[in-house]
Design a protein around this nucleic acid. Sequence first.
DNA 1: GTGCATCCTCTAGCGACTAGAGGATCAAGA
DNA 2: TCTTGATCCTCTAGTCGCTAGAGGATGCAC
Lengths: 143, 143
Amino acid sequence: MSDPSFSIGALSRETGVKVPTIRFYESIGLLPAADRTASDRRVYDRKAVQRLAFVRHARDLGFPVEAVRSLLELADHPEQSCADADRLAAEHLAEVRRKIGQLEALRDELARVTAQCARGKVADCRVIEVLSDHSLCLTPDHH
Amino acid sequence: MSDPSFSIGALSRETGVKVPTIRFYESIGLLPAADRTASDRRVYDRKAVQRLAFVRHARDLGFPVEAVRSLLELADHPEQSCADADRLAAEHLAEVRRKIGQLEALRDELARVTAQCARGKVADCRVIEVLSDHSLCLTPDHH
DNA sequence: GTGCATCCTCTAGCGACTAGAGGATCAAGA
DNA sequence: TCTTGATCCTCTAGTCGCTAGAGGATGCAC
């Protein structure tokens, strides 16, 4: 059986998570406190690599740290119902959709405004004009 | 000629910007330091209302504060070329498009994963499984 | 032994606010 | 005139998720 051990740098290379970020995750309790060598350096095993990869993946998918914490907790208890995991993912998905909608409205507004810019003086600038007068917006409810 | 004056609360109601945020904007120099009454309360005029509305609108459109600062500077100099304003808006638009793209990839991944969830035990949970194994992702380059 | 990489802890900074403490002032009603 | 409640003031600290840097100890290859 293989039982390799990793320094924090090796763990970082394995997972693509930066060294200070790993220490940060430990400090907020997202990762358990690592074992230490005699000279106080952190030592990790395969399980730690997997756990951090899980964290990284969840973060890349945009889950907030608190959601990641819950997901880790769930992953540690395979016999439980997965309703919570499903709910977390669904909530996050809804949030992502909401943000996309917002950004699309924003994109349309910006595209319209920049397209109309005649590239003359500021006095005639469509960008500045629209910023000065909200009623010129196509979607006045972007706030 | 009308020359109404506004308290910070009235300015807040006029513009929809919260009182502490107005003070914050002043503290970072985004708004000029307001005139004060004898008892040290801030007093604003119509121009201040317009300026803050401009700031609010630019922020709502997602411009970073530093970009807002530049846009204000431009708005104050109507005889200059509007190339800078146009560039700022175009850069911001590109950034917004990029974010939308990212979020769409994310949304697709989340939608796929949650749709596959059989709502049983965590051990069989698709959400947890995919988080544990990045290679199960449809778009493995979401990071 | 001599570098240089890597590790350690700790503090501070980022962006853009938001919240709260602790106190002063104002305007309206009794 | 007094009181009450809203509004105002400054200041500090907290939010989120890291990132950067100081200042020092250790490990490893030549």
